[in-house]
Every structure is written in structure tokens, then in C-alpha cells.
Amino acid sequence: ERLTKEIDYWTDRWMKLREDEQAGKDVRMNVETARRTVNDLQGRLDNRKRELHAMRHVTAATPVAFGGALVIPVGLLRRLQGEKDGAEVSVDAEVAVKQRTERLAMEAVRHVEEARGCRVVDVSGEKCGWDLTSYPPAVDGRMPEPRHIEVKGRLKGAETITVTRNEILYALNQADKFVLAIVLVSSDEESVEGPYYVRNPFDAEPGWGVSSWNIQIAALLERAEIQC
């Protein structure tokens, strides 16, 4: 379409120049130059039409393969051979350390509570907002209220603990019944410090859309009571 418009333009220009030249007028462009431009554009248009016509008859030929390669990710090969890559080993090791730290922390709190004569029930798997329910022994024939203890075990040197929105809301709702227990585990996992009990650890609800808080351990320990 573009070539057709150009051809029409230059054809009209060529005809006017020729008429002006025949009438003896002074023309700025040579008539022959305009004619050659028209012929050149017409030739380009004809070539393009032949190309488009030939493209209508293009058919896909049978592909010819000169070679091939099978690419297998090295990570897949290692998994098929029962091996683990460095990233997986690192993640597994980190998870194992976390699990051992949490187990030692839970055992430390349970030991303290049972030494007081309390009956301790592990409810960590129930996702109820705390880990241990501690039932104190009866006093003068009356059963005191149980304590709901959220246990946070961290390696010594860690700076923060993470508390979930659910844990914060339960702590605020239960007030004195809720206890945040912090246990610091040595790097060799042979000894622990604590547990440190923090009562009424939170003074505000998390904002909308906040799923957890990171809290400085040092700030919590300033308010904590060491349990022996």
C-alpha cells in the first residue's frame, strides 16, 4: 500500500512536470528524474508482489536432525542417586538444629514445672497459641488455674525471638494465665540457660495484616524471672 501511494504521487508529479516542460515553464526537477523514480518504485512493487505470491506456496519440509543432546540437571541426578546438594544439606541441618533447640527448651520448662508438682501437658501440636499447659497441685482442696506457657528456645547469641499473631492475641486475652518462657541453648546443645518467664509480655495487638513480630531477647530478659 505504501509503495502504491508513492507510485501514484510520483506518477502525478511526473505528468505535471512534463506538462509544464512542454508548456515552456521553468521546472525545478528534471522530468527524467521523476520518471526514473516512478519506474524504480514500480519495480520494487512488482518484486514485493512476487515475494508475497511465492510465500503462499511455502510448505514445511521434514526436519532433518544432525545431532541431539540429553540435558539432565545435576541436582536431579544426585537425588536419584540418593545424594543431596549443598543447599538441601544446609537447610536440613538448620531444621535439625532448630528442632533440637526447641526440644531442649521444652524439656527445660517441663522439668521446672514438674519439680513444682505440676502436671504438664504438651499442646504444641494443637496450634492453640501456647505449647505447654501446666496444672498446679491443689491448694486447700482447690485447683489453681492452669498456666499456659509459650516456649521459645534459641541458641545463645541469638538476638530475637519470633512470636506469631495467634500467640500475641492469646497472651493478651489470657493475661496472667499466659507465660512466655525463653530458654537459651548452648551452641554444642549440651546445656541451657533458663527458663526465663515473662508475664504479660505484650501490651498491644499486632496491626492489620501483621502475621508475626520479632522481639529483642535482651529487652524481654530485663523483665523476666529466672526459674530454677
Results as ranks from 00 to 15, higher is better:
residue 83 E to R: 15
residue 106 M to G: 09
residue 133 T to P: 00
residue 107 E to Y: 01
residue 161 I to M: 05
residue 122 D to G: 05
residue 119 R to L: 10
residue 22 Q to V: 00
residue 156 K to Q: 14
residue 15 M to N: 05
residue 137 P to A: 01
residue 87 A to S: 13
residue 36 R to P: 00
residue 15 M to S: 04
residue 80 L to H: 07
residue 60 A to N: 15
residue 112 V to D: 04
residue 98 K to G: 15
residue 129 G to C: 05
residue 23 A to Q: 10
residue 128 C to F: 03
residue 85 D to I: 08
residue 100 R to Y: 04
residue 137 P to W: 08
residue 41 L to S: 06
residue 25 K to P: 04
residue 51 E to P: 01
residue 43 G to H: 02
residue 136 P to C: 09
residue 21 E to C: 11
residue 59 T to C: 04
residue 67 G to A: 13
residue 36 R to H: 05
residue 99 Q to T: 13
residue 79 R to G: 05
residue 110 R to Y: 03
residue 64 V to H: 13
residue 96 A to I: 03
residue 54 A to Q: 14
residue 118 C to T: 01
residue 126 E to T: 11
residue 97 V to C: 09
residue 79 R to C: 01
residue 146 P to R: 08
residue 97 V to Q: 15
residue 83 E to V: 08
residue 152 K to R: 12
residue 99 Q to K: 14
residue 73 P to Q: 07
residue 47 N to G: 05
residue 91 V to C: 00
residue 138 A to N: 01
residue 101 T to A: 06
residue 62 T to K: 15
residue 101 T to K: 02
residue 158 A to D: 14
residue 25 K to S: 02
residue 120 V to P: 07
residue 138 A to L: 02
residue 24 G to I: 10
residue 53 H to W: 05
residue 123 V to R: 11
residue 136 P to M: 07
residue 18 R to P: 01
residue 147 R to Y: 12
residue 23 A to S: 13
residue 29 M to N: 08
residue 84 K to I: 00
residue 32 E to T: 11
residue 113 E to R: 13
residue 116 R to I: 00
residue 26 D to Y: 04
residue 69 A to T: 11
residue 112 V to I: 12
residue 139 V to C: 06
residue 128 C to Y: 04
residue 91 V to G: 00
residue 157 G to L: 01
residue 131 D to Y: 06
residue 21 E to Y: 12
residue 162 T to D: 09
residue 18 R to L: 09
residue 39 N to R: 15
residue 108 A to G: 04
residue 122 D to T: 09
residue 26 D to G: 02
residue 33 T to A: 10
residue 61 A to H: 11
residue 78 R to C: 07
residue 72 I to R: 13
residue 139 V to E: 07
residue 32 E to K: 02
residue 58 V to D: 06
residue 16 K to L: 13
residue 49 K to Q: 13
residue 108 A to E: 02
residue 30 N to Y: 01
residue 159 E to Q: 13
residue 22 Q to L: 04
residue 160 T to M: 08
residue 70 L to D: 03
residue 62 T to E: 12
residue 28 R to W: 04
residue 35 R to P: 01
residue 62 T to F: 08
residue 37 T to Y: 07
residue 143 M to N: 07
residue 107 E to N: 13
residue 41 L to V: 11
residue 96 A to L: 10
residue 124 S to T: 09
residue 91 V to D: 05
residue 141 G to K: 11
residue 61 A to V: 14
residue 55 M to A: 14
residue 56 R to M: 12
residue 86 G to N: 10
residue 52 L to S: 12
residue 114 E to H: 11
residue 88 E to L: 14
residue 141 G to A: 13
residue 67 G to H: 09
residue 76 L to G: 00
residue 47 N to D: 15
residue 118 C to G: 00
residue 143 M to C: 07
residue 81 Q to Y: 06
residue 109 V to H: 04
residue 162 T to S: 10
residue 16 K to I: 15
residue 73 P to I: 07
residue 98 K to A: 15
residue 44 R to N: 03
residue 44 R to D: 08
residue 143 M to R: 15
